[in-house]
Amino acid sequence: MNFKVHKTLNQSFIAAIMADIQQLHHLATQVRRDILRMVHGAKSGHPGGSLGCADFVTALYAEVMDHQPSFNMDGVGEDVFFLSNGHISPVFYSVLARTGYFPVSELASFRKLNSRLQGHPATHEHLPGVRIATGSLGQGVSVAVGAALAKKMNGDTKHVYVLMGDGEIQEGQNWEAFMFAAHNKVDNLIVTIDYNGQQIDGSTQQIMGLGSDIEAKLKAFGWEVMHMDGHQMESILDTLSKAKSASGKGKPIFIIMKTEMGYPVDFMMGSHKWHGVAPNDAELEKALSQLTTPLADY
């Protein structure tokens, strides 16, 4: 799969793209099944945000990024990704396994003793695909800025991607990193914020309002800001393509990705309730019945 957005498309090309998008949908649905089964199996974890970001992380790894599942920590000559909101590790692990970083059967070990799939992503157990430990929030953007600087110093033209939570932006370190990246023109960096409006204790507006205009905040910090619908594969691919085109022009790029926590499981959507709770047997069955795919469970 190698999706490119073109202004003028012939019919066969459109058909190929639609087939691509259909495949991405299947993969994202399978990732959602994995997320629910992993969290259920561990009787703990964070399904809500993981489900909400499944389309984006699937698109990144299956379509957008130029990356090597053989995995080299330094990531020289390839795109690298950091998950700053490490608690949505289930989506990260599932996508890594499903794109060839390690066997999908290993997903069953999530949060279990002696596993490489720790509750939050870690390098300590040498899980291929993970380049930094995250979980204590607010640190991933700084790490990504450092990795982006290293790419510039190495003459490496590939990109650095980060996903962060919207509640996570309350951590002050992010704003240090935002200032630095703009001041130093770190323009090979594409940060996406999962703008689902929920955090553990309630909605972000209740807990610590992010302000009516997150776009204006980031623009004022000197970033190029884009929007995308995190549940429309076409929107994700189109926006990431535009982001790549906008890179290298002196500004870091910030994408506000609208998502719904728990999407698309009907009883998990629209609330913070499923931020950090595992489904029981009946809830798992009900959720899985809403997620059908031709792919196979681990």
Partner: peptide, 28 residues
């Protein structure tokens, strides 16, 4: 100068960036 990074008064960001710089083979 190409290997010197002035981070301003932002030590948390400095440590995070140092960790990131190692990913790419730097010794920060």
């Amino acid at each position: 100068p190409e290997r010197f990074v002035q981070v301003g008064i932002a030590e948390a960001n400095m440590i995070g960036m140092a960790a990131g710089l190692t990913i790419g083979g730097k010794i920060p």
